[in-house]
Amino acid sequence: MSMIEFHDVQKYYGHFHALHDINLEIDEGETVVLIGPSGSGKSTLVRTVNGLETIQKGQLIVNGHDLSDPKTNLNILRSDVGMVFQHFNLYKNKDVLENIMLAPRIVSHIPEEENKKRAMELLEMVGLEKWAHNMPSQISGGQKQRVAIARTLAMRPKLILYDEPTSALDPEMIDDVLQVIKKVTNESGMTSLIVTHEMGFAKEVANRVIFMDQGQIVEDENSASFFEQPKTVRAQQFLSKIISH
């Protein structure tokens, strides 16, 4: 069954055509990596999937909800679709544990004890159980991103969107975060859509790679053949530029 379906989707910012004729189907359980030069529309595309960006034309169906229909309840959709941001977006006024427990409490009405137990398990999984009562300002960027992943998992999403999860991190923090993402994608069987510039990671984690340029999907391949031999010149150029240094 498909988790995400784009049918002829168009997105404009004023006159700028940000997403151009997007047609894409992602099945349940797939791990799809989105790559491409900056400004190619990767982030815009993932942000349309949970309705943070609206589309102007076409049809977009996510987990059975039609996002092109203005009557669709985005809150219900979003409680099944997690998102991990480039800049973490942890709640600055809540400690690490509360960051994880807040949405399950007020959105899903999980009983307090169960919620706390689950939150602590997730913190353990990302290796941060000792930091439960620290404020976000007291932990490093890599730790913040691991908390953000735990916060997303606490809602037991069916789909997780990662919007450049390591782009704002110091080099030595990147690996910890990538390890956690790998663990989550491998163990959970959740559908994942990942925007990243980390090619080694993309190769390892993805079943499928989508290469975007200028708001269009240029290639949509399984991971092995894409990294072996991209079909388009544009993708070949992009890969050689990224891998050469």
């Binding site: 943070l52 809150n75 219900i76 977006n89 942890l90 949405a103 809602m155």
Partner: peptide
């Protein structure tokens, strides 16, 4: 704006995000 997006992306309504995340930070 990231605070609002972070909250909304977990399924909170606009008013929940206001009440639990935005207003407490704003008052401070």
């Amino acid at each position: 704006g990231g605070q609002m997006e972070g909250a909304r992306s977990t399924g909170m309504t606009y008013w929940q995000a206001m009440r639990y995340i935005i207003l407490p930070q704003a008052f401070k």
